[in-house]
Write a protein that binds this DNA or RNA. Structure first.
Length: 264
DNA sequence: ATGGTAGCGTAGCTA
């Protein structure tokens, strides 16, 4: 089973690129973040025509929005709310075989890496804390689960283009890395992409729109992740970070799709 | 140190 995750930055604007991803990579399941559309306007018909007849979408006007799109049936579709908000950042569904799949969009956190000065950063930290506590108390490492999405944190030295320079930049600060580590430890999540790519190797999934030339400057960060619980680790058979998608015409997302293959 | 671009929706917020 091939699972893709992509922060698409508007599913309506980039529907053609989503169909391109589906046609070229043949995923069985696609998880999206930043769909930026209310549920009634989600372009489900075009996806159904490609065989993605099962969908769990949860969006709002203009901002955020997450989705799970699937060729296979989805069961137990639910929504999680964090920090007392209903801002469409987390959906859950169960795939055939009983694998519980999470599509998550952690808040970006604004610019100032200080929760006292910046409420967005405080929100981000609390969001991760709440998810960690929920996972620890409601889920077990024995259960087959996959968590994917834009976690908006690049935890490893080689998940960013310059570790020292980004230590005080939101997405790579020690407090965020520590909290994401606690979430990962909560039920022994395995980083499915670093399972294949050594930590010594640079790897990014996001390049800013503001760079003059994203490709040659290559100032990226690995913000998008795929995690699996221990029962699925030995079933991991491959991965792909679709760097080429950062150059897709006419208008690329600033994030690229990440794909993982899980043997059934 | 600063400002650079993008999407939504049509001003200003979010990233």
């Amino acid at each position: 089973m091939r699972i893709a995750t992509w922060n698409i930055n508007s599913v309506r604007l980039r529907l053609d690129l989503l169909l391109k991803l589906i046609d070229e990579q043949a995923p069985d399941v696609v998880c999206l973040q930043e769909t930026k559309v209310v549920d009634k306007d989600f372009p489900l018909a075009a996806l159904a025509a490609r065989g993605f007849v099962h969908a769990h979408v949860h969006g709002m006007k203009s901002y955020n929005g997450v989705a799970i799109l699937s060729r296979r049936p989805l069961a137990a579709c639910t929504v999680q709310h964090w920090c007392g908000k209903e801002d469409c950042r987390h959906v859950i569904a169960t795939l055939p075989g009983g694998i519980e799949l999470h599509s998550v969009y952690i808040p970006s956190g604004g610019d100032i890496p200080d929760p006292e000065q910046n409420p967005k950063f405080a929100h981000k930290l609390r969001f991760v804390d709440e998810m960690t506590e929920w996972l620890a108390s409601h889920r077990s490492p024995d259960r087959a689960m996959v968590l994917v999405g834009d976690l908006n944190i690049a935890p490893l030295v080689n998940d960013v283009w310059n570790h020292k320079e980004l230590l005080d930049v939101v997405s790579h600060t020690p407090i965020e890395v520590e909290k994401l580590g606690a979430m990962q430890s909560s039920i022994r999540w395995v980083d499915a992409v670093r399972h294949f790519v050594p930590e010594t190797e640079k790897l990014y999934t996001w390049w800013s729109y503001r760079a003059r030339d994203w490709d040659s400057s290559d100032r990226g960060r690995r913000l998008d992740h795929v995690w699996v619980t221990p029962p699925l680790t030995s079933a991991l058979t491959g991965y792909k970070v679709l760097r080429e998608a950062r150059g897709w015409e006419p208008k690329p997302s600033d994030h690229v799709p990440v794909l993982v293959d899980i043997a059934e």
